[in-house]
């Protein structure tokens, strides 16, 4: 049940990201809601949810607006796994932790993406993208997670989500 609801949430976020957020771009950058959600979920629930939600979110993004299957799925899943792995060792109610994790996740997401693109020899000028937008996406994702993380924490206390 928990996974189902959270998947729906991710799907909604992907749709929002692809339809509403392009209108409120800041310096050409839209906040990566899916990444933020995966990081938060991984922090709150742990490895399993991190992996599954990362995979679901990534595959959905790939299908809906990606050309290459798995290009979002792989980094999202890895990040979900790593965050879930780390969440066992941190205190998740802390306010700094999700912020820090989001920054690291944003960086590593783009790093992994770049690596994939480089290795698969896909012709996307990723280096230009990174040089131009990484700083902004760090800032924006960092700001968004501060506001959205308390909401996710509250959501985790919801009965439907509490039961496995």
């Amino acid at each position: 049940m928990r996974l189902f609801i959270l998947s729906l949430l991710l799907l909604a976020e992907i749709i929002i990201e692809s339809s509403i957020l392009p209108f409120i771009k800041i310096k050409g950058v839209t906040p990566d809601l899916v990444l933020i959600t995966i990081v938060s979920m991984g922090l709150i629930y742990g490895k399993k949810e991190g992996i599954i939600l990362g995979l679901i979110g990534g595959i959905f993004s790939d299908i809906l607006f990606g050309r290459i299957l798995g290009i979002h799925g792989l980094p999202y899943m890895l990040i979900g796994y790593l965050v879930g792995f780390a969440s066992e060792k941190v205190y998740k109610e802390n306010r700094i932790i999700p912020y820090l994790f989001t920054l690291i996740a944003t960086l590593s997401y783009q790093g992994i993406l770049y690596l994939i693109i480089y290795l698969a020899r896909i012709e996307i000028p990723m280096d230009i993208y990174i040089r131009k937008y990484t700083a902004f996406s760090l800032i924006i994702n960092g700001i968004i997670v501060i506001f959205i993380y308390p909401f996710f924490l509250k959501l985790s206390e919801w009965n439907l989500i509490k039961q496995r």
């Binding site: 995979l55 290459i68 299957l69 798995g70 290009i71 792989l74 899943m77 698969a120």
Partner: peptide, 15 residues
Amino acid sequence: ITIILISLISFTSQG
């Protein structure tokens, strides 16, 4: 899953 995804990527990357 990583292996699966990588193979997926390599399958689909060339258009």
